[in-house]
């Protein structure tokens, strides 16, 4: 869907314009993002910096935090999510009302970062769909603002496709290691089972 087919009528003193309803709605939505900060770890330091005077997130209409997920439409996942935290994150996401957006703040939220271990969730997209990933450990406020603008852009387009990051392990490599199936699908299924089964 293309956006902003805006028509401005000449000669109108008041300067009114017509547009499609969805476009207007998207436009309004993208500048009034009510955020729910799900802040867990180191990225909180940069999140504070982002909210504070120098970088001032309020310029982009995304500064008002709502501490109830039911009132928020943008979920900031700031920091590492452990396996123990994952059900809580999912609950919070489920409690949010549509339309809802998710921004993965930092490498840990995006893919688990360098915590490739027994306790860390390798990216929140394993549990909830994510709209924008902001890499960095922690990301600089500038890159977060960039991510925020990308999200606004996505909202304006009415695009609701969740993003996907590449899996950490290349299934083709695993296939050769496991040496049980030639198909990558089978190998990947085995990998998934390996990673999720109980001992």
């Amino acid at each position: 869907m293309t956006a902003s087919q805006t028509y401005v009528f000449d000669g109108s003193e008041q300067g009114f314009a017509t547009t499609r309803f969805e476009d207007l709605l998207n436009w309004a939505q993208k500048y009034s993002l009510f955020q729910y900060p799900f802040v867990t770890a180191c990225c909180a330091m940069e999140f504070m910096a982002l909210a504070s005077p120098r970088f001032d997130m309020a310029r982009f209409g995304a500064e008002a935090p709502r501490f109830s997920p039911r009132q928020a439409d943008l979920l900031w996942v700031v920091g590492t999510i452990s396996q123990r935290q994952a059900p809580i994150l999912k609950t919070v996401y489920d409690q949010m009302a549509d339309p809802k957006y998710v921004l993965a703040f930092g490498t840990c939220a995006s893919c688990g970062g360098f915590y490739d271990n027994y306790t860390t969730l390798a990216g929140i997209d394993k549990v909830i769909p994510v709209d924008v990933y902001v890499p960095g450990c922690p990301p600089r406020p500038e890159s977060v603002i960039d991510g925020l603008l990308l999200l606004q852009d996505k909202i304006q387009r009415g695009d609701r496709t969740p993003g996907i990051v590449k899996p950490r392990t290349d299934p083709r490599v695993v296939a050769s290691q496991l040496a049980t199936g030639h198909s990558t699908d089978v190998a990947h299924a085995q990998l998934v089972e390996l990673r999720t089964s109980k001992p």
């Binding site: 590492t80 452990s82 123990r84 915590y115 306790t119």
Partner: peptide
């Protein structure tokens, strides 16, 4: 506590 256990010692 433990909601931010990231396995520091194991890593």
């Amino acid at each position: 506590i433990g909601y931010l256990h990231r396995g520091f010692e194991k890593m």
